[in-house]
């Protein structure tokens, strides 16, 4: 029994190491002094300094944050409303909505991306709307994020005592007052977790952006992809290391929030 749990320890630690291999290698090589090849030749912060002077990178950072912010705002509002309403739908409606929310979550993103490309191009031909760029990317990202927000908010609501809302209603509160003073404060943690998830999803996305982007609307993942296609440089590693650092911070915050509020 002892040796069996020892093996399990060993295997599991090795698997965790395997998971972190790519993350570690990117961070390590972002500090490597040599420009070409993977031989280690000393520590430098040169590549991080170079990023600050790169206008393309700075524009991509701006676009990425703008895209994530705008899409998070829209998807959080829409997803929260749906998450609140979903359990009051008639059973058939609830079942169909459940499927509608599940499908975008498990579908290969490329299928969703090309379907949107077709929609955008057809509507553009008739009306001139949907010129590819930041706008179309926001539309695509919101579509991806709504299901995640709705499901998080709904699961938060599922554990909530409806007698409070009923009591308020019996005491003469209007439907809006009930929502604003009782339901909303209770689900606020769920909304914040949902919003943080939506933001992270947007930062992580490459495929949707790649297909729905237009001239001058590059995001960090698009920039990283096109750089890697030309050959990995230390600057790209430095940029990726920063992105990784941001993800780690976001996840630690998310974990702490969830521990505090959702348990």
């Amino acid at each position: 029994m002892k040796t069996r749990s020892g093996t399990l320890h060993g295997v599991s630690v090795a698997l965790l190491g395997f998971l972190y291999l790519p993350i570690v290698v990117v961070i390590v090589y972002s500090f490597n002094a040599t420009r070409h090849g993977v031989a280690w030749s000393g520590f430098t912060l040169e590549w991080y300094r170079a990023l600050l002077g790169n206008d393309l990178v700075l524009a991509a950072v701006r676009n990425t944050l703008w895209l994530a912010g705008a899409s998070t705002l829209i998807s959080t509002v829409l997803g929260t409303l749906l998450g609140c309403g979903l359990d009051r739908f008639r059973p058939a409606g609830r079942r169909w909505c459940g499927r509608l929310l599940q499908l975008p979550m498990v579908m290969p993103d490329i299928v969703m991306a090309v379907a949107l490309v077709i929609l955008f191009s057809l509507v553009r031909r008739w009306t001139g709307w949907f010129q590819l760029g930041m706008g179309t990317m926001v539309l695509a990202h919101v579509t991806l994020e709504i299901p995640f927000v709705a499901i998080v908010v709904r699961s938060r609501l599922a554990g909530f005592d409806s007698s409070l809302a009923e009591a308020a209603q019996d005491l003469g509160a209007s439907r809006f007052q009930v929502f604003w003073w009782i339901t909303f404060p209770l689900i606020l943690p769920g909304i914040l977790v949902g919003a943080l998830l939506a933001f992270t999803l947007s930062l992580d996305d490459f495929v949707l952006s790649f297909f729905t982007t237009g001239p001058g609307a590059s995001t960090l993942p698009i920039f990283i992809y096109s750089s890697v296609k030309r050959g990995i440089t230390p600057e790209v590693n430095a940029l990726s290391a920063i992105v990784i650092a941001f993800s780690i911070v976001a996840i630690v915050i998310l974990t702490l929030l969830q521990r505090r509020w959702l348990r």
Partner: peptide, 14 residues
């Protein structure tokens, strides 16, 4: 939640 693109190109190095 770490960018899949980054974790993928890192294997080119590895």
């Amino acid at each position: 939640w770490t960018n899949l693109l980054i974790r993928t190109y890192a294997w080119q190095i590895l």
